[in-house]
Amino acid sequence: MSSGIEFWQYLTGHFNYIVVITLMMTGLYIVISTGNLVKKLVGLGVFQTAVFQLYITMGKVTGGQPPILEGVHESATGEATKTVAEHGEAAATTAATHGEKAVQATISIAKTMDDVLVDGVLYSNPLPHVLILTAIVVGVATLAVGLALVVRIRESYGTIEEDELQEANYQHAKGTLS
């Protein structure tokens, strides 16, 4: 019975990861199993998008808001600047003392629900979003280069099936031998 409860708790707390892992594996399976170069790239896209989902589900906070602060731009100047100036000095000394390990005493890890509120509001974690924005861009860059290669491969080989390409390359190698 208790193991049943534990399993249910595990499942409700982790179903998102399980689904995301399934999707990742679907993408990876497409990449490896297909010999068609365009479909390979589609698979790569599915795989990468699933990784994005892993990051984003990780950063979700139940009951949280999107990480856009409420009512900041009016009050951003007054007391704000002071903290920045102080921080600036602290950072400058860090940078100046070469050879010392990272100083990170100022950041504490939140332990209670009160710690995670920012001006009384609960937000989702912005950092995974930032990382994934970067990763999406890298993904589309790779895709563009990959598709450009596919087009050129088709022009010079007349096919985009991996098996036929290997065969053509093998024939070519045999041709140079004799």
Partner: peptide
């Protein structure tokens, strides 16, 4: 160590 944007690590 070099700190980009002078934002102390981490």
């Amino acid at each position: 160590m070099y700190v980009f944007g002078n934002w102390a690590p981490p």
